[in-house]
């Protein structure tokens, strides 16, 4: 019914942090869109502005120091940046939910896990009786592979992987239209990560939820994302389908990322690191923000901000030289 339609459309978003040392330009002129049922991978290294972007969508930024300078975040045809906090709270619980890297940021240590899921369920459907909520909460736990008996345990009685699965159950309890996951498996061991990813893939299909998956791991992106945005120093430098990025990645930073990771299927002998360091966000370079680290940089890259070029339908690259 909603297939092919746009659920989320971010236009020209700029977010700064006003700090003692200066203005941190965390997100600059970021535009992005996500269709119903799609999973978008937001990829970038520490400090690229990924968390700031999704916190802005949810309006959970701490303002100050954060300041939304400009832009629109159109979600189901309405601009989230124009909503008051009361309306936003409703949207957060009902339509958009979030999974953080550290499960304890979303779990209450003094409530049992079933109480916490019941709370979310009842917040969304006030008509639900306590008993009905409990039954539903236990079903959600089973769905994420945790036995119903464990519902009366407290978070600290669970391992890291199980806590993250409880969070997924909570995040899905309100049947959101958009699920945002910020490095949900970074703190987990790989076999546990595999369990959680498997679960997320299954739920994505069953619930048809749209998803934004933040990660620095191109392996995870390959596994579950339809669209990919590569972020560098507050900007999206390349955006496209998984095919575009994996078969025809064009931005020098995208190429650099692929060249510097060891791959267990490759017989590579030498890694090719990206030279230098990510820039200081208080003191960003002029022109293309990647130019000091780019081996293809020309004169124009040092002075002019590259335009966002559509190289092929749906494949955008922000680079002078492609």
């Amino acid at each position: 019914m909603n297939e092919g339609k746009i659920l989320l459309d971010i236009r020209d978003l700029t977010v700064h942090y006003i700090t003692y040392d200066g203005t941190v330009r965390a997100v600059e002129n970021l535009s992005l869109s996500l269709k119903y049922g799609e999973t978008l991978g937001l990829v970038g290294e520490t400090g690229a502005g990924k968390t700031t972007t999704v916190k802005t969508i949810l309006r959970i930024l701490q303002e100050p120091p954060a300041k939304i300078i400009k832009g629109e975040i159109i979600f189901e045809n309405e601009d989230l940046l124009k909503k008051d906090m009361k309306k936003m709270r409703k949207i957060r619980g009902k339509q958009i939910s979030m999974i953080f890297q550290d499960p304890m940021t979303s779990l209450n240590p003094v409530l049992t896990v079933q109480e916490q899921i019941m709370e979310v369920l009842r917040l969304h459907n006030r008509k639900l009786s306590k008993k009905e909520a409990l039954i539903e909460a236990l079903e959600m736990l089973e769905m994420v592979g945790i036995q119903a008996e464990r519902g009366s345990d407290y978070p600290h009685q669970f391992s890291g992987g199980m806590k993250q699965r409880v969070i997924i159950a909570m995040a899905l309890a309100c049947n959101p239209k958009l699920l945002i996951a910020d490095e949900p498996t970074t703190a987990l061991d790989v076999t546990i990560q595999a369990q959680v990813l498997e679960l997320m893939k299954r739920l994505k299909n069953e619930y048809d939820t749209s998803m934004i998956m933040i990660t620095h791991d191109l392996g995870i992106v390959a596994e579950i994302c339809d669209k990919i945005a590569i972020m560098y120093a507050g900007e999206i430098v390349e955006y496209g389908t998984r095919k575009h990025i994996f078969h025809n990645g064009l931005h020098p930073y995208t190429k650099g990322l692929f060249a510097c990771i060891p791959n267990i299927l490759d017989e590579e002998t030498k890694l090719i690191p990206i030279k230098g360091l990510a820039p200081d966000p208080i003191n960003l370079p002029l022109g293309c923000k990647f130019h000091p680290r780019c081996s293809y940089a020309c004169e124009i890259c040092k002075t002019e901000i590259p335009p966002n070029k559509e190289i092929e339908p749906g494949h955008f690259v922000r680079c002078h030289i492609v």
Binding site: V190, A194, E198, A222, E223, K243
Partner: peptide, 25 residues
């Protein structure tokens, strides 16, 4: 075998048969 199969591969052209381990250590 399970450990190696759990590693996400940064490529969209390979399909790994993943062995999902039950439970925790």
């Amino acid at each position: 075998q399970a450990l190696l199969s759990a590693v996400p591969i940064p490529s969209i052209d390979v399909k790994i048969d993943r062995i999902i381990l039950e439970g925790d250590v």
